[in-house]
Amino acid sequence: MTNQEAKWILEAEIEKKKKSIGNEKNYMRELTDDRAVLVHIEDLQAAGKPLPPESGYDSYLDWKTQIEKEIKSSENSLSRIETERAELRAFEFFMDNVPQD
């Protein structure tokens, strides 16, 4: 593979990384919202209140388990974005510094 061929491949990857990194704010919002919902669930449960009928869950445990999964998913996405940010830097360095063949 020539340097130019590698650069063509990386151009598409760079765009994918930028797009993914652009979603960081959305993941942060989701994580903030989910953490607030988890606190709310725990408050309702501690107060001995029945599940709200619109919750769609059979128990507080089911609801908490789902929210905890969503929190973990957002945390994993944010972690992945950090890796993509490092990869993007490496790709851009390559693009800027590797000579044409």
Results as ranks from 00 to 15, higher is better:
Met1Asp: 12
Met1Thr: 12
Met1Arg: 15
Met1Cys: 14
Met1Ile: 11
Met1Ser: 14
Asn3Ile: 14
Gln4Cys: 12
Ala6Gln: 15
Ala6Lys: 13
Lys7Cys: 10
Trp8Gly: 03
Glu11Pro: 02
Glu11His: 13
Glu11Val: 01
Ala12Val: 06
Ala12Met: 08
Ile14Cys: 03
Lys16Glu: 14
Lys16Asp: 15
Lys17Ser: 01
Lys17Trp: 03
Ser20Lys: 15
Gly22Gln: 07
Gly22Tyr: 06
Gly22Leu: 03
Asn23Phe: 08
Glu24Pro: 02
Asn26Ile: 05
Tyr27Cys: 02
Arg29Gly: 10
Glu30Tyr: 06
Leu31Lys: 09
Leu31Gly: 07
Leu31Met: 12
Leu31Asn: 06
Leu31His: 06
Thr32Glu: 15
Arg35Trp: 00
Arg35Cys: 01
Arg35Tyr: 04
Arg35Pro: 02
Leu38Phe: 04
Leu38Met: 10
His40Tyr: 14
His40Phe: 09
Ile41His: 00
Ile41Gln: 01
Glu42Gln: 11
Asp43Ala: 10
Leu44Lys: 05
Leu44Gly: 03
Leu44Phe: 01
Gln45Tyr: 01
Gln45Ser: 12
Gln45Arg: 14
Gln45Met: 08
Ala47His: 13
Ala47Cys: 08
Lys49Asn: 09
Lys49Tyr: 04
Lys49His: 03
Leu51Ser: 02
Pro52Tyr: 04
Pro53Ala: 14
Pro53Phe: 06
Glu54Val: 12
Glu54Asp: 12
Ser55Glu: 01
Gly56Lys: 13
Ser59Val: 07
Ser59Gln: 09
Ser59His: 04
Tyr60Pro: 00
Leu61Asn: 02
Asp62Val: 01
Asp62Leu: 02
Trp63Ser: 01
Lys64His: 02
Thr65Gly: 01
Thr65Val: 03
Gln66Val: 08
Ile67Asp: 00
Lys69Arg: 12
Glu70Asp: 07
Ile71Leu: 02
Lys72Ser: 07
Ser73Tyr: 06
Ser74Gly: 08
Ser74Cys: 10
Glu75Val: 01
Asn76Asp: 11
Asn76Ser: 04
Leu78Pro: 03
Leu78Arg: 04
Arg80Gln: 15
Arg80His: 11
Glu82Phe: 05
Glu82Asp: 14
Glu82Ala: 14
Thr83Pro: 03
Thr83Ile: 14
Glu84Asn: 08
Glu84Trp: 05
Ala86Asn: 14
Ala86Lys: 13
Ala86Ser: 10
Ala86Leu: 12
Glu87Phe: 04
Leu88Phe: 07
Leu88Gln: 03
Arg89Gly: 07
Arg89Ser: 09
Arg89Asp: 06
Ala90His: 14
Phe91Val: 03
Phe93Val: 08
Phe93Ala: 06
Met95Ala: 09
Met95Arg: 07
Asp96His: 07
Asp96Thr: 12
Asn97Thr: 13
Val98Gly: 06
Pro99Tyr: 13
Gln100Asp: 08
Gln100His: 15
Gln100Glu: 07
Asp101Met: 10
Asp101Trp: 12
